[in-house]
Design a binder for these strands. Structure first.
Lengths: 153, 153
DNA sequence: AGCTAAATCACCCAAACGAATGAAAGAAAC
DNA sequence: GTTTCTTTCATTCGTTTGGGTGATTTAGCT
């Protein structure tokens, strides 16, 4: 890590220096290139525009991920209690819901198993089915999605 | 402490990016302007590059949350309220809160790491500290507790 | 100038978790 | 009475997570 950190900083400093250098070069070039202003301005405009596009894309791409897709967002603005057993029509069984509730409370598979008097294998099976029905891959995702769907809490 | 360190590195990274960018621009200017005006290609190149820069910037600025003073925009699309800074007197740092928020959205350590531009090791460290401060053992527990404490959402 | 806290990253190891199967018994549906 | 669904459990295998420990850097405080 020692060498690595140093190397990383060297690279960054080099990048900065290079940036400054090239800036100066680019600037000084203007002294000789009087004609190219149109091109420069054009490129600048495009650059600025696409920075905007990039930022937009970046923002869009970073945060959400959660509630879209199959789902449904019953109440767009006012989140009453729009998600009762109606939304269980994802085909979630009662037993699966029990597991889901325990899940949301932060219990481990083993704890859930003992609470429901089954084996951990069974819990894992229920969870797998739940993940498929909720279209998620991890327990934390499942909790988040179930909550946003109003399945729990 | 948070913002400064991050900001300093941001400057360096920006320097690097700028250096690369200007290099490519200079290089492309050479080829296209000497040979012939392949203006479209040039503009396309610039556009693509700046989209990349924009995405990078967008990603970078979508994450940061500052807790010490006032809160600053945790998530652009899905607004989780960083909430009662009063309860931050569990000693939860701003960076830890960022991780916590990502956690609650069901992201894996690796995803969180990439969103916050750190290594998974760092994420794990933050999580460990978080668990200790929240007095929990698992991520699902952490989410549940943080929610009940009003730290998130 | 020294101290402290925050943030970063690394390495190791063990436990928990998840995917992909297969299987079996009982209830409900047809 | 065969089909379908639910619930149950198992095994294997690979991935993820978490604990423990230590290190470095930077910023802020005294």
């Amino acid at each position: 890590m020692t060498g690595k950190a140093v190397k990383a900083r060297m690279v960054l400093l080099y990048g900065l220096a290079l940036g400054c250098l090239l800036s100066v070069m680019a600037w000084s070039r203007y002294r000789f290139m009087v004609i190219d202003h149109a091109l420069e301005a054009y490129v600048l405009l495009v650059a600025v525009l696409f920075v905007g596009v990039g930022i937009w894309v970046g923002l869009r791409w970073s945060a959400p991920v959660v509630v879209e897709k199959t789902v449904v967002r019953p109440a767009p603005v006012v989140p009453l209690q729009p998600a009762p057993e109606a939304l269980e029509q994802l085909g979630i069984s009662s037993r699966e819901l029990e597991v889901l509730i325990q899940l949301a409370q932060g219990y481990s598979n083993e704890e859930i198993a003992s609470h429901l008097f089954v084996s951990t294998n069974t819990v894992k099976t229920h969870l797998s089915n739940l993940y498929a029905k909720l279209d998620v891959k991890r327990r934390t995702q499942a909790v988040d999605k179930a909550r946003s769907l109003g399945l729990i809490r």
